[in-house]
């Protein structure tokens, strides 16, 4: 198969902002292109500060918001042509999301296992309760949990790390070929962060899933990603193999980002603040 798995070409997304008279267009994502190949399973990382458009890009890849211009093709199919519910369902089975805060992704009033069962009913051919449960259990075992641990539990009864694992397990039920993970570890504790990050590595190596990993944490990005793309204000400023880019960034913004990472080996010395160059006076005055 020569079709790329995901082809993002010149994608733009603009939001209209302001009132009736002082209306202007704000480009959240501006001319972004990248490709993920079909047979090379990789972790593709998108890095950027808040407001750099990385979440908007993720939502467009998940076909949750329409793009303003450009095209996204998944296995050759343009996402804009996916209109019928059946096509949408098939697409959702192939591309699954993982969200930032597991405590917000799960409804606190509903049991966690319900999400697994509904996903299994919708995306697999399992119909009886026993089949659905075995699908859920299979997915949970891939992330190091079992159905016995999460059955009948509410989100508050599980720790953040467990809940994020359940979220990963839920996305695996439909056996996707692409997972879009939007800041999956930024709300998780340091001690659990690495086990989630290692889980992504396992998914890539053992289950042949490609992962789009969106983050602002350069250290974990360096640790797991194969390729990396740095975004600033909706535009790609630098992209390439992760190790090369992060070891020797070229663009001034990438260098600033790289230098801002707090090294755990520091000796308690911080540099002078550099607000004058990175921030405007009032965010309201564009």
């Amino acid at each position: 198969m020569s079709e790329p798995l995901l082809e993002v070409r010149n994608v733009c997304k603009a939001f209209g902002m302001g009132g009736l008279l002082a209306r202007y267009r704000f480009a959240a994502v501006n001319d972004v292109s990248f490709t993920i190949e079909q047979d090379r399973h990789e972790i593709f990382t998108i890095i950027g500060e808040s407001g750099s458009g990385k979440t908007t890009l993720a939502r467009m890849i998940l076909n949750l918001v329409p793009m303003t211009s450009g095209s996204i093709r998944f296995r050759g199919t343009d996402l804009a042509t996916i209109r019928r519910p059946a096509d949408r369902l098939a697409f959702m089975g192939h591309v699954q999301p993982i969200f930032q805060n597991p405590f917000e992704a799960f409804n606190p009033l509903k049991r966690v296992d319900r999400y697994l069962f509904t996903t299994a009913r919708r995306f697999t051919d399992a119909r009886s309760t026993g089949e659905v449960e075995s699908r859920a259990d299979l997915a949970l075992r891939k992330v190091g949990l079992s159905l016995a641990e999460v059955k009948q539990r509410f989100p508050h009864e599980l720790s953040g790390g467990q809940l994020q694992r359940v979220a990963v397990a839920r996305s695996l039920i439909s056996e996707p070929s692409l997972i879009v993970a939007d800041e999956p570890v930024s709300m998780v504790d340091a001690s659990i962060r690495m086990s989630i990050v290692n889980l992504f590595k396992t998914l890539r190596d053992d289950l042949n899933v490609s992962i789009i990993y969106i983050t602002h944490d350069l250290a974990t990005a360096y640790y797991i990603s194969d390729r990396i793309m740095i975004m600033k204000k909706g535009e790609v400023v630098e992209s390439g193999p992760a190790r090369t880019v992060l070891a020797d960034p070229q663009h001034p913004y990438s260098i600033l980002l790289r230098n801002s990472v707090l090294s755990p080996d520091a000796k308690g010395e911080l540099l002078e603040p550099q607000f004058s160059t990175t921030e405007r006076d009032l965010a309201g005055t564009r």
């Binding site: 801002s260 707090l262 911080l270 540099l271 603040p273 550099q274």
Partner: peptide, 9 residues
Amino acid sequence: VVVQKGVLA
């Protein structure tokens, strides 16, 4: 990360 470093300083 960029803002964090400045605020910490």
